[in-house]
Nucleic acid binder design. Structure first.
Length: 514
RNA sequence: GGCGGCGUAGCUCAGCCGGUUAGAGCACGAAGCUCAUACCUUCGGAGUCGUAGGUUCGAGUCCUACCGCCGCUACCA
């Protein structure tokens, strides 16, 4: 187990704001939020940063398409940001800091880093050699355009040679291979690390073109050493991870937060994070982040989601039909984090009904009903406060800590559900309705008290995944100070005071009829 | 083509260094119970563990070949 009560810096990618957020964006956010909430209730000082990537050709073009004039790109991105922020709010994403690559301190940081690398000699002027599609105004590399036609529009390409600035990736290739070898947790899951390693060992790295001529693109951060160019968007965007905490403008905070514990990303942008980014940092003498975790994609009916196929899942469509926590739960439970998953409403409903309604919701409901019927809505007193339930809770706590360190959310949830199901079984075995009939009040009180405690514990355990439902449960149990819940209280038994008046409400997760 | 991975019950998957009758969840069938959201609990069925060989006293578990599927093989966010 990693030590707790520490700072914990975690990031999501900066989302490109040329289109509306989709299921993939929401997946990264929800996963990151679950980790952050877990760490917070463990006592860590969490800094969860997310934000938006706003420079580059595609933004410039999207601005024009949306009726903005050249030079008004920032107004365009300003108009898009609220869509993202609103979705994060609706998904209960509790981030600490929102960074935009158009923020001044960020732009200054990018220039500072570029300047530093330029002066150290790792950026040099060379010649970019590739293809250009005039109608699309798009650059394509030789490997992208093997047929010499535009991969987008299929029209013939023009060969282009242009002076540009390059960053010496190649110089640090051996260093990176060695670093990954010595830090096996740097890239997770391991099958992704293997891919990166085999790529690094099998190819001589080409230097990275980090400039774009203003003749074609002006919407970007100007190179500090040449006014004729702006910065390549990836170089710009990656820098956010250090500009946000304040490498330039808040050195104290930066010093405390860096290195980041996790960069959460989708598998499609692993290369940039696992190769370019650590080399950029190394070139300026900053150590790499601890772990880059690349998660998988959601497919529908076996197909990758894409705009052209028209099979993209809109998070708002789901939120319009199902509770937010059913969506959060589904995404984190359905697959082992890292692998691809198959998304469908049927699967979501199945999970909801069997796990949330039948197992958890029903356990809460039946327990509260018994407190109501047998003890006039007040939690009964009990004499014995340790036993099998406590042991089971402690075992669960260990499994949660272990699996959360590996970001294996589905395993964490399985551990919690084993505890829930154990409790449903306990009710069958002890048959409280029988105890009641037979007038065995002490035994009945003991059992009901244990069940209330179990639910208190479960509430804390599910909180990182389903914060809204946890708050609801906490309230129904008649407990106070929800904001102060603490993971360590999972390991303690007997915290609920006898006499606490429960506050039974509507079923937590009403079954969805198909 | 090269490197890596996968192919186990209807579905989704677990099976670590090879060792008693191959597991889980969901789905399905039966019984029990009544505190509960037609819920919960118990029991049950079915799998030649991709194919063919090999190593071994013994192989989903190691080796070889083949079939099928997937990922990576750079500068596009």
């Amino acid at each position: 187990m990693k030590t707790r009560n520490k700072k914990f810096y975690i990031t999501t990618p900066l989302y490109y704001v040329n289109a509306a957020p989709h299921i993939g964006h929401s997946y990264t956010q929800i996963a990151t939020d679950a980790v952050s909430r877990f760490r917070r209730i463990c006592g860590d000082e969490v800094f969860f940063m997310t934000g938006t990537d706003e420079h580059g050709e595609k933004i410039e073009r999207a601005a024009i398409e949306n009726g903005f004039k050249k030079g008004e790109e920032k107004r365009f991105t300003d108009s898009i940001i609220p869509n993202f922020k609103k979705l994060w709010k609706d998904l209960n994403i509790d981030y600490d800091f929102f960074i935009r690559t158009t923020d001044d301190y960020h732009k200054e940081t990018v220039k500072f880093i570029l300047d530093k690398i330029y002066k150290s000699g790792d950026i040099y002027k060379g010649e970019y050699d590739g293809w250009f599609c005039v109608p699309c105004e798009m650059f394509w590399s030789h490997t992208q355009a093997e047929d010499k036609v535009c991969p987008d529009c299929k029209r013939p390409l023009n060969s282009i040679k242009e002076a540009n600035y390059f960053f010496k990736l190649s110089k640090y290739q051996d260093w990176l291979i060695d670093y990954i070898d010595k830090n096996p947790d740097f890239i997770m899951p391991d099958y992704r690390r293997n891919e990166v390693v085999s790529f690094l060992k099998g190819n001589k790295l080409n230097d990275l073109c980090i400039s774009r001529s203003k003749k074609r693109l002006s919407w970007g951060i100007e190179l500090p050493f040449d006014k004729e160019y702006v910065t390549y968007v990836w170089f710009d965007a990656l820098t956010n991870y250090i500009s946000g905490p304040g490498v330039l403008n808040n050195k104290k905070r930066f010093k405390k937060l860096w290195p980041a514990e996790f960069h959460m990303i989708g598998k499609d942008i692993l290369r940039h994070h696992a190769v370019y980014w650590p080399i950029m940092l190394h070139a300026v003498g900053i150590e790499p982040p601890r772990t880059i975790f690349a998660h998988g994609w959601w497919t529908t009916k076996g197909e990758k989601m894409s705009k052209s196929k028209g099979n993209i899942i809109d998070p708002y469509y789901i939120l319009g039909k199902y509770p937010v926590d059913s969506y959060r739960y589904f995404l984190l439970k359905e697959v082992s984090f890292g692998l691809d998953g198959s998304f469908s409403e049927e699967a979501l409903i199945r999970r909801f009904n069997s796990d949330l309604a039948n197992d958890l919701g029903n356990l809460l409901n039946r327990t509260l009903t018994m407190v109501e019927k047998y003890f006039a809505s007040k939690v009964p007193a009990c004499s014995k406060k340790n036993g099998p339930c406590q042991e089971a809770a402690a075992a669960m706590a260990g499994r949660i800590e272990e699996s959360m360190d590996r970001l294996n959310f589905s395993e964490t949830l399985s551990a919690i559900w084993a505890f829930i199901n154990r409790s449903n079984k306990l009710i069958e075995v002890r048959a409280p309705w029988k105890l009641n009939k037979e007038g065995k009040q002490d035994e009945l009180a003991q059992l009901i008290y244990e069940l209330v405690e179990v639910l208190r514990i479960v509430t804390i355990a599910v909180y990182p995944f389903m914060p809204a439902s946890a708050e609801n449960m906490w309230g129904q149990l008649g407990l106070k100070d929800f904001a102060k819940i603490n993971f360590n209280d999972i390991k303690k038994f007997g915290l609920v005071k006898s006499g606490t008046r429960i506050n039974k409400g509507a079923p937590l997760f009403p079954r969805i009829k198909q």
